[in-house]
Design a protein around this nucleic acid. Structure first.
Lengths: 94, 94
DNA sequence: TTACTATATGAACAGATATTCATATAGTGG
DNA sequence: CCACTATATGAATATCTGTTCATATAGTAA
């Protein structure tokens, strides 16, 4: 395994390693949501959500589309859901 | 999703979020290794490996068996490999 | 254009994290 | 028992991370 892959992989998993981001991903599992809806569901500020979405976007975990003056975010691909659910399985089994 | 699950899940993924731990997991994908072998393969000190193994053990990612005065570590269950490989797939696709 | 709303961004701070170094522990063989 | 080897642990430190607060930006509607 190449060194670059190592770091990319660690970086990728790091994105899943924060409770706020887990809440965001969890909220987006079944439907897209805009930033202020996410802030409400997750229970934190718009700014905190926005900072975290930046990280999620950067790692291609989420994408967004604009509708009027709202940005609706959703999960980027099926891997994200797969990995999330595998993680859930693991912690349930302990 | 319960708050406790959120934190457990984030904690679980955090374990995958460090290059040294990724190297350890990667090295253990196909065979068990003792601590000093891991230190050599990963390219760091015995102490650093030991500290990281503690974390990996705590999250049930690895287990070990004793043979003479060596501890051989291996991955704990198939989820670990699954998640690791899913992560690899994701970063390859970007 | 202007006012408004939604979102993004930058700086600062507090808390977490990984490594290093020194040392402790525990199992093995004599 | 003792000496030796493998591993674990604790403290210290430098680095990184997430939130907050204040502010900027950008799209919309009038």
């Amino acid at each position: 395994m190449k060194d670059e892959e190592i770091y990319d992989l660690a970086e990728f998993f790091k994105v899943f390693s924060d409770p706020t981001r887990i809440k965001i991903i969890s909220a987006l599992l079944d439907k897209e949501l805009c930033v202020c809806e996410l802030a409400e569901v997750v229970g934190t500020t718009q700014s905190a959500i926005s900072h975290q979405l930046r990280i999620l976007k950067g790692s291609h975990l989420v994408r967004f589309r604009r509708e009027k003056n709202c940005l609706f975010y959703s999960l980027d691909d099926e891997h994200i859901k797969d990995i999330f659910l595998k993680g859930c399985e693991h912690i349930e089994e302990i």
